[in-house]
């Protein structure tokens, strides 16, 4: 892994949520190999920022530059209540996330099985493969969602409030998992959370959106970087 290659760079971003401006003139970068945290109270624009970085929220102004390695980042959205009766197993949940255009109608195509099996094994949840999503605990479901986000082998994984709705044991386990993915699989992570206790000890750097000030280590000097970043379609 080559350190300090900026995977994502936000330049002078201004973001609106409806008619309200939630962030103005915000700049930051995410370097390859770092575990960046973004914290702040509810409503300060954390999720909006994450969606803008993902390309699903249009900034009011500013630029987002993406390295080719960050073209298809993995994304684990904020916990949304899942219909407990939705007839979908964990392995099927992973299958519907795959970007591959292999046609299928029910049974998981053979070409996808290997990848799904590998991801479930990697996250230690292969025993959940045939369990219905609604029957999983909060911690198990979060692991399945992370496995789904990693299915296409992204170099960058973005998580929005990953510890919400989890008890302390599941939160600790999730923290260990994220650290494992970061260290052992060289994954760059961006974790958005209002829970500073969760981010503490997890992230290598943290940006507090309330203060727009970095509260951990300082940012590397990405402003002068000449890495092959491309401007996202804004």
């Amino acid at each position: 892994m080559t350190p300090d290659i900026p995977l994502l760079e936000a330049r002078s971003l201004s973001l609106r949520y409806g008619t309200r401006e939630v962030l103005s003139d915000f700049s930051c970068t995410i370097d390859q190999g770092e575990l960046l945290g973004i914290s702040g109270p509810n409503g300060c624009g954390k999720t909006t920022l994450l969606k803008a970085l993902l390309g699903i929220h249009r900034p009011a102004s500013g630029k987002i530059l993406r390295h080719t390695l960050a073209k298809n980042p993995g994304y684990v959205p904020q916990h949304a209540p899942i219909d407990k009766n939705f007839p979908l197993t964990a392995s099927e949940y992973l299958a519907i996330h795959c970007q591959s255009r292999i046609p299928w109608i029910g049974g998981i195509p053979r070409k996808l099985r290997h990848g799904i099996c590998g991801k479930l094994d990697c996250l230690g949840i292969s025993h959940l493969a045939n369990r219905q999503l609604g029957a999983l605990s909060g911690g198990e479901l979060q692991r399945v969602r992370i496995a789904a986000a990693l299915l296409d082998e992204p170099k960058l994984l973005m998580l929005d409030e990953p510890s919400s709705h989890l008890d302390s044991a599941a939160t600790g386990s999730l923290k260990q998992l994220l650290l494992h993915l970061h260290k052992e699989h060289s994954l760059t992570l961006l974790v958005v959370s209002h829970d500073t206790a969760f981010l503490k000890g997890l992230t290598t750097r943290c940006i507090d959106l309330r203060a727009i000030a970095e509260i951990c280590s300082p940012s590397p000097s990405w402003e002068t970087s000449a890495s092959p970043l491309t401007t996202s379609a804004l």
């Binding site: 699903i56 298809n72 994304y75 949304a80 219909d83 979908l88 299958a95 519907i96 255009r101 029910g106």
Partner: peptide
């Protein structure tokens, strides 16, 4: 209908379960 399901089953399932995530997946 069969061809639609053959090609769109995955996106349709994800969009039904979590439209926002489906958008994020392109």
């Amino acid at each position: 209908v069969f061809l639609f399901f053959l090609t769109q089953l995955r996106p349709l399932t994800l969009a039904t379960l979590d439209p926002e995530l489906a958008r994020a997946r392109g």
